[in-house]
């Protein structure tokens, strides 16, 4: 088999794998994450990625005064803990889940509208293998009562 032919086959396989892995994260987000919002309404935005140990994402979002939010971070079962911290516009850490045993749900509200940055990272605790899997981030908003 020629080198060029092998390269084409490899690329096609890789593209198919991208579709498969990404597709799995959509289903993962819907099936494993959304229910954790419980009584909060999902805002409809989609944030998910396949991450390996040590990899992370940073999310920027404006949060509005008067809304109650729930932040949920879900991970594939095989992955170790997910570390996340929330930083305000002045660079101050306003929440750090490592201080609460890597809790994956944070309920909060803000008395002034502000942009917050959520830094999320897959911790490392396996000695020999690099584990990878889907990580999804979802925001819920408390339902209106009227």
């Amino acid at each position: 088999m020629s080198r060029a032919y092998k390269a084409i086959i490899s690329t096609v396989i890789a593209i198919l794998l991208v579709a498969k892995v990404n597709g799995q994260c959509v289903a993962f987000a819907k099936e494993s994450c959304k229910s954790k919002l419980e009584t909060y309404v999902h805002d409809g935005n989609y944030h998910a990625a396949t991450l390996s140990e040590g990899e992370g994402v940073e999310l920027h979002k404006t949060f509005f005064e008067g809304q109650d939010y729930r932040l949920v971070i879900c991970k594939a079962e095989k992955l170790p803990n997910i570390y996340f911290k929330v930083i305000n516009e002045l660079g101050r850490v306003v929440y750090d889940n490592s201080k609460e045993n890597y809790k994956a749900i944070w309920d909060f509200n803000t008395s002034k509208t502000q942009e917050l940055t959520v830094q999320i990272m897959v911790t490392e605790d396996s000695e020999k293998q690099v584990l990878s899997g889907c990580v999804a981030v979802m925001f819920g908003i408390k339902k209106m009562t009227d």
Binding site: V41, D43, G44, N45, H47, A49, G54, E55, G56, V57, E58, L59, H60, K61, T62, F64, Q67, Q119, V137, F139, I141
Partner: peptide, 13 residues
Amino acid sequence: SKLIFYSLPSPLE
């Protein structure tokens, strides 16, 4: 190495 997500207020929000 981080990835970056920009999250807009959704139509629902």
